[in-house]
Every structure is written in structure tokens, then in C-alpha cells.
């Protein structure tokens, strides 16, 4: 018994339902000489699924037999461990796990992989593939270390970088890769998928409800399928009027936004602080909290347009500080209080 997400995850390029044009292009790629890839797009768009499909297309079923190891590296001061997922043909790693020491991972591990050839003589391809997750979190130094490795060991090694945005990938890396953009699927595509799952699970799901779920998921298929599964497990019968459950942390955010709009005072700040701490203790990332509060305020109808300008300005300002600073709570609170003062100043 697995989650529907995993159960209905496509495993071949032909079965991919979203972005058909892109899948065709990828298929063309795997037929001929395969380049380094840089796959980017919003989360939930299906980047990872595509990578797995590409690997399967390149190497056949062998790429699905994976094992997880831990490798350790010695630096002058510290011992580092990194988890590696590998099959006979590929290795998958997340160098940002070791923070600023990620350069060492590339210098040691990648060069080691690059210098050895494919062991399996029957392999379909002569090269191995290294999948690098969260490539936008890698430090600049580490990215620089990749540059020459990518050129020099092209005969043994292909790199697939996977990230949410190319903004923080340095230019020399971008110019060495083929850029593949994976956009989020449209509402229609998601509802079709939902209905496909529903018919396989023998649940009745009307078109309008499927549309409603997809709309609420903000075009994120992962979220849509999870929501649908939760709904299906709660109630046996789904008619059009069923309320779609909102994730509970989003309700808390809505609550915070409501409080800020209602009264702008020091007491609000302290109740908001309570809630933010609560969210953080449930592992909601601080940047997401800030973003959701900002968007909630920005689209709120009771706030004057002038105040919204200040709100969105301070949102980016404090988000920037949050990323470069240390204690996230300070910056979220600073944002909340500056938003409140912006609202107050337009009231009088």
C-alpha cells in the first residue's frame, strides 16, 4: 500500500501526462548524444519524475535498483557525512546538505566518479550520470569547481542539475548545460489526472469537483493528488458540495492575516508571535511563513492600495534579511510590525 502519488508516478517518458511537448524533446535527447542538463521549474512540476524517466530511458530497468549509502569526507577541521543514492549507472546527491563544505564533495567525490569508467560492460551508455539536487543552494565556489570537471570528463560523466530557479546558478555552468524548463501543468491537465486516478480506484469524482481541487492546489499536482487522497479516505461518497480541506497551517496563516488587518497594536504582535512559533515548531520554513502572510495581506481587500505598496516592499526587504540573517523570528516580526504601521498610516 503506497500513496497515490507514488503509485501513479509515471516511470517512462511515454507515460508522462503533463508537458507532452517537453517529454517528446527529452525522448529525442536520449536517442542521440546526451548533454549535461539543467532542469528547473517550480516545486511539484515534475522535475524529479522526469529525471527518473530519463534515467530509465537511458539505462533501462537497472536504473531503478537503487541503494543508499553514506560517504564521509575529512576536511582539516571537520568530518562530513553525505547521503548518496546510487544505482549501477547513476549517483544522486544533495551537496547542499553539508552547507559551505559542498566544494569538497565536488572536488573529491565527483572527480573520483569522473575518472573511473562505467564498470558494467553491457551498459547501454558509456557514461555515468550524476544527479545533483537543489543545485541553486550550492555555493559559488562549489559551482566553480564543477566548471572544468564538466568539460574534461565529458566522456565518462553527464551531470543533471535539478533546481527551482536558475537565478543563483553561475553563468559558466548555465552555458555548459542544456536548459530544460518544467512549468506547472494547467488546471485541466491536473483534473484529468485526478479523474484518471479516481476511475482506477473506483471512486466517483465529478469534473467540477476535480476542477475545484486542482484550483485550490494552485496548479501543484502533488498537492492536488494528496488532497484528493485525504478526501477519499475521509468520506466514501464525494459529491460536488464537499468542502475541500485546507491544509491546517494555511488556516493558521489566514488567521494571522485576519488579526493583522483587524487591529494594529502591540497585543496583536504578541499573539501573532505565538502563532509563528507554533508554525515553526511544525517545521514550516520561516521564508514560507513570511511569503504567505505577505501574499495574504497583499490580496486583502480591506487594505488601502498605498499601504500595499509599503507592505510588499517591506516583505522583500525582510525576506532578504531573513535569508542573510540568523534568527528568523526577528525578521518575520519586523515585517509584521512594519506591515501594521503601513496599514495604520493610511487609516488616518
Amino acid at each position: 500500500m503506497s500513496l497515490w502519488i507514488d503509485k501513479y508516478r509515471p516511470t517512462t517518458l511515454e507515460n508522462l501526462t503533463f508537458n507532452q511537448g517537453l517529454s517528446r524533446k527529452l525522448k529525442n535527447l536520449t536517442d542521440s548524444d546526451f548533454p549535461h542538463l539543467l532542469i528547473f521549474g517550480p516545486s511539484g512540476a515534475g522535475k524529479k519524475t522526469r529525471i527518473l524517466c530519463i534515467l530509465k530511458e537511458l539505462f533501462g530497468d537497472g536504473a531503478e535498483k537503487i541503494k543508499i549509502d553514506q560517504r564521509s569526507f575529512e576536511t582539516q577541521r571537520k568530518k562530513l557525512d553525505i547521503n548518496i543514492i546510487s544505482s549501477k549507472y547513476h549517483i544522486e546527491l544533495t551537496p547542499s546538505d553539508v552547507g559551505t563544505y559542498d566544494k569538497i564533495v565536488f572536488q573529491e567525490l565527483l572527480t573520483e566518479i569522473a575518472q573511473t569508467q562505467q564498470i558494467d560492460a553491457d551498459a547501454k551508455q558509456r557514461f555515468k550520470v550524476v544527479v545533483i539536487n537543489e543545485a541553486d543552494e550550492i555555493t559559488r565556489d562549489a559551482q566553480a569547481a564543477l566548471r572544468r570537471t564538466m568539460e574534461k570528463y565529458m566522456s565518462n560523466l553527464r551531470i543533471i542539475l535539478c533546481c527551482n530557479s536558475t537565478s543563483r546558478i553561475i553563468e559558466p555552468i548555465r552555458s555548459r548545460c542544456m536548459l530544460i524548463r518544467v512549468p506547472l501543468p494547467s488546471i485541466d491537465e491536473i483534473s484529468t489526472t485526478l479523474q484518471h486516478i479516481a476511475s482506477n480506484e473506483e471512486i466517483h469524482l465529478s469534473k467540477s469537483l476535480a476542477d475545484k481541487i486542482s484550483l485550490q492546489s494552485q496548479r501543484n499536482p502533488r498537492k492536488a493528488i494528496l488532497t484528493f487522497e485525504v478526501m477519499a479516505s475521509q468520506k466514501k461518497k464525494l459529491n460536488d458540495n464537499v468542502e475541500i480541506p485546507k491544509v491546517d497551517w494555511e488556516q493558521v496563516i489566514d488567521d494571522i492575516v485576519g488579526k493583522i488587518v483587524k487591529t494594529q497594536a502591540a497585543e496583536t504582535l504578541s499573539t501573532v508571535r505565538q502563532k509563528i512559533y507554533e508554525l515553526q515548531s511544525h517545521c514550516i520554513p520561516p521564508s514560507l511563513i513570511l511569503k504567505k502572510i505577505a501574499l495574504g495581506l497583499f490580496t486583502n481587500e480591506d487594505i488601502h492600495s498605498k499601504a500595499k505598496f509599503d507592505i510588499i516592499n517591506s516583505a522583500t526587504h525582510y525576506d532578504h534579511r531573513l535569508r542573510t540573517g540568523r534568527h528568523s523570528i526577528f525578521h518575520i516580526e519586523a515585517f509584521v510590525s512594519s506591515a501594521m504601521s503601513a496599514i495604520l498610516s493610511t487609516k488616518y
Binding site: 537565478s167 510588499i312 522583500t316
Partner: peptide, 14 residues
């Protein structure tokens, strides 16, 4: 902001 990793959605909205 973007170079330091600020949220892209917020920046473009701004």
C-alpha cells in the same frame, strides 16, 4: 535580493 536568494515570487510581485 535575488542574488542573495530572496523569494522570487515576492520580488517579481514587488
Amino acid at each position: 535580493y535575488l542574488a542573495d536568494g530572496t523569494d522570487e515570487h515576492l520580488v517579481i510581485l514587488n
